[in-house]
Design a protein around this nucleic acid. Structure first.
Lengths: 235, 235
DNA sequence: AATGAGTATTATGTATGACATAATAAAATT
DNA sequence: AATTTTATTATGTCATACATAATACTCATT
């Protein structure tokens, strides 16, 4: 047996706390009983008795479930099952000031990846109204020569609308959550300032592609549009 | 004052619990003091005294920070600051059985978006060794005629390696987290079974593109490779 | 002086009991 | 019947005590 196997062996000792076990127990309960959203789970005291632990432990475990978005606790009513909001949880710790720089850079990258890859969703779900809205947004776009002024609200309005069009609310939430990070990374010295301020594919052109083009054209257009950001990433 | 304004006014009443406030307080503390990873924060009792609340409340607030990945608690040593693992948190609630179907479908979509959009990262960071590994993986690929058997381990090995090549550990974690969901969605009746099992761009061809092609070619190739999945999404 | 066994200390983990609070249900009043 | 008042109930908060595990310390041994 080599060292790794040995280590893995040791790793298998149960180092979990009581709360850990109760938490796993409760999650299992939800799965097993196939409880639906809105159903209520037993009271803290009942759980404490039936699991043979103190209410303190139960409360900590329930708190975890609550943070995972699995339940919601109301006074008197007890706890009821809810459908977890994946990104709601994550957004709580999505605080630029507490994330290390590597993570921030990675999140920044993910944003670029998403916006390039979302083309097919956009084309499949976009409506005439969406296009009209996009046109409204870009109609107030500052002239090309001043593009480097980089109106951040304008950017958010445009790109945010794109996320919305995807019809993917998880992704939309992800973007909302990303905003402060994006802002932070952009203003911090984390990435090199863009040296060349060439004009790339504009928002207007992207809208034109959405109206009359193909997903493939959009991906390329968006890739080009984001060139400054990529350049900063890759030096 | 109209009704909306009035409502917003009412909404502004502080409905947060004690723990909420303490939590916000602690997060603020971390930001303010610019505490670095590894620094330790005051003991529970000290916090309780200085904030004027019971240790119970402090413990609940600390538990939340712990779940956010902001701190880690060790016996005797107290709590120390850690760099939050964004997706570690989310993965806890990433349990297919507790997520509703819409969310599952959305997550499935995000996976597709990521893999198409990651092209530029791949090309910028891929190494000769990576290409060799990919070739090894696809060398055991089942023949085209049996493609619809859809060897899931093989799929995971190949696509997982791609995530790895991006060098973006957050994205890689995201993928790891997605696996059970992907598996679940694939096997459940959530999406229609693919009706046509045409052969699209294969893993081998994708590797060839990575070796000698361009990001643009890769995006199109991947889009085509994922055609069956898209078809199931869009009917 | 270095090592190691054994002990003391300390901060978190768990248990228990009590009361506060808010939401609901039940009862009483009009 | 509708509304107000009261009672009930389950979560939220507090206080205290003890268990446990990790660390620091002591001291004997070499």
């Amino acid at each position: 047996m080599n060292l790794t196997a040995l280590k893995n062996n040791f790793k298998s000792v149960d180092t979990s706390s009581l709360v850990d076990k109760v938490e796993a127990n409760l999650v299992e309960l939800l799965k097993e009983k196939k409880l639906k959203v809105g159903d209520s789970i037993p009271k803290e005291i009942e759980l404490a008795e039936s699991l043979g632990v103190s209410r303190t432990v139960i409360r900590e475990a329930l708190l975890r479930l609550r943070m995972m978005g699995l339940i919601e606790s109301k006074k008197k009513k007890g706890a009821v099952i809810t459908s977890p909001d994946l990104f709601g949880i994550m957004s709580k710790s999505m605080n630029p000031h507490v994330l290390d720089q590597d993570t921030l850079k990675e999140i920044f990258e993910i944003r670029l990846v998403l916006e390039i890859g979302m083309a097919d969703l956009l084309f499949y779900r976009i409506t005439k109204e969406d296009i009209k809205e996009l046109k409204d947004i870009v109609s107030t776009e500052p002239p090309a020569t001043q593009f480097h002024l980089f109106n951040i609200e304008h950017e958010i309005a445009f790109h945010g609308k794109l996320y919305e069009i995807t019809g993917n609310s998880a992704m939309k939430k992800f973007q909302k959550m990303l905003l402060p990070v994006f802002d932070y990374v952009h203003h911090s010295g984390l990435l090199k300032k863009q040296p060349l301020l060439k004009m790339f594919v504009s928002h207007k052109e992207l809208v034109a592609i959405l109206e009359n083009g193909t997903p493939e054209q959009f991906r390329n257009g968006m890739r080009n549009h984001l060139e400054n950001h990529f350049a900063r990433l890759f030096d």
